[in-house]
Design a protein around this nucleic acid. Structure first.
Length: 293
DNA sequence: CTAATTTGACCCTA
DNA sequence: TAGGGTCAAATTAG
C-alpha cells in the first residue's frame, strides 16, 4: 500500500519534472527563434549577440530535447533510459559467475534498431551530409540511438574505448566507446565512431543509450561548448585521437553549424520513419537528452 | 603503479 | 555462417 503510494508519488514528481523541462525547452526555443527573427531583420546584429547559426542550433537543441522527452514517455521508457544498462554491475556478476567472456544476457537483448535509412531521408537535401545507402543496423538493448557526422570525436562526455573492429567493405575501422562512468554510476551510454567513407576527414558518430551518470553535459555546458568552438583539429592518421575529457574539449565544430542549406526541419520531424523507437532529430549533433539524476 | 588502450576471442543476430 | 558488438588479457601511457 505504502509502496504503491510512493510509486504514484514518485511518478507524479517525475512527470511534473519532465513537464517543467519540456516547458523550459520550448520557452528557450521560442526565445531563440524570436532572436533569430530579429537577427534576420538586422543581419549585422548587436555586439555580443549570437549568430544566426548559433541561434538555429539552440532552437534545434530545444526541439530535440522536448521531442526526446515526449517520445520516451510515449514509448514507455520513462526514467530508465537503457534497459539492461542499469544492471552493469549485475551483469558483471553474472559474467563472473559463468566465468566466460562475451556471455550475453538474452533477455536483455531485445531490439535491433535500424535507423540509417531514416537519417538518409531526413538529410537528403543537405549537400553537406551524404549518407551511404548501406544498411547500418545497431544491436541495441531497447535504447535510443541517433547518429551524427562531425569533424571531431570529442564531446562533453568522458568515454572509454572498449573495442575496435574492421567493418566489411569499409576502409576505416569502427571504434566502440562506453561511458567512463559505466561501472561507477551504472551509466549505459555508448557511442561508435568511424571515419566517413566519402568524407574521411569527418567522423560518423552513433550514440546509443542515454547518459544516466552525474557527469553529463547540461545545456549551459553545451552552449559554452558551442560558443567556444575553434578551428578544426588535425586528424591523426593511424588511429582515432584519444578521447578528450570534459576539461580539454576544444574543437566542437559542430555539424549543426553547417546546416544553412537545410530549411525544412518541420518536414524532418513530421516524417513517418516507420520505426517506433526512433527518437531523435539527426540534425542535432549531441544526444538529445541526458536526464541525469 | 594505475588507468587507458589494443586486440584477439567469444557471442549474438540475421 | 558471416558480420558486428562486447569482453578481458596484454600492452602502453602517464
Amino acid at each position: 500500500m505504502n509502496n504503491n503510494n510512493n510509486l504514484c508519488s514518485d511518478e507524479s514528481v517525475s512527470t511534473n519534472k519532465k513537464k517543467r523541462v519540456i516547458i523550459k525547452e520550448l520557452v528557450q526555443g521560442q526565445e531563440a527563434a524570436t532572436k533569430l527573427k530579429l537577427l534576420l531583420k538586422n543581419p549585422f546584429g548587436s555586439e555580443g549577440s549570437l549568430s544566426s547559426q548559433e541561434l538555429m542550433a539552440n532552437i534545434l537543441r530545444s526541439f530535440s530535447e522536448t521531442i526526446s522527452i515526449i517520445t520516451s514517455e510515449i514509448s514507455g521508457q520513462n526514467g530508465s533510459p537503457v534497459a539492461g544498462a542499469g544492471n552493469a554491475s549485475n551483469e558483471t556478476k553474472k559474467r563472473s559467475q559463468k566465468g566466460g567472456r562475451g556471455c550475453y544476457n538474452r533477455s536483455s537483448t531485445v531490439v535491433v534498431h535500424c535507423f540509417t535509412r531514416q537519417t538518409l531521408l531526413c538529410v537528403r537535401d543537405l549537400d553537406y551530409w551524404v549518407w551511404k545507402e548501406e544498411a547500418l543496423c545497431v544491436r541495441t538493448k531497447s535504447s535510443q540511438a541517433w547518429s551524427i557526422l562531425s569533424n571531431t570525436t570529442g564531446d562533453n562526455y568522458a568515454w572509454r574505448k572498449y573495442g575496435q573492429k574492421e567493418i566489411l567493405n569499409s576502409e576505416f575501422p569502427r571504434s566502440y566507446f562506453r561511458c567512463s562512468y559505466k561501472y561507477d554510476q551504472d551509466c549505459g551510454a555508448t557511442k561508435q565512431v568511424q571515419r566517413d567513407e566519402e568524407n574521411p576527414e569527418m567522423y560518423r558518430i552513433t550514440y546509443i543509450g542515454l547518459h544516466t551518470c552525474n557527469a553529463s553535459a547540461d545545456s549551459v555546458d553545451w552552449e559554452s561548448f558551442l560558443l567556444n568552438c575553434e578551428a578544426s583539429e588535425t586528424i591523426e592518421e593511424k588511429q582515432y585521437p584519444k578521447e578528450e575529457t570534459p576539461s580539454d574539449v576544444t574543437d566542437p565544430t559542430l555539424v549543426s553549424l553547417n546546416m544553412e542549406s537545410h530549411n525544412n526541419d518541420a518536414e524532418c520531424m513530421d516524417m513517418d520513419f516507420g520505426v517506433d523507437s526512433l527518437q531523435f532529430c539527426p540534425h542535432f549533433p549531441f544526444a538529445p537528452s541526458h536526464h541525469c539524476p
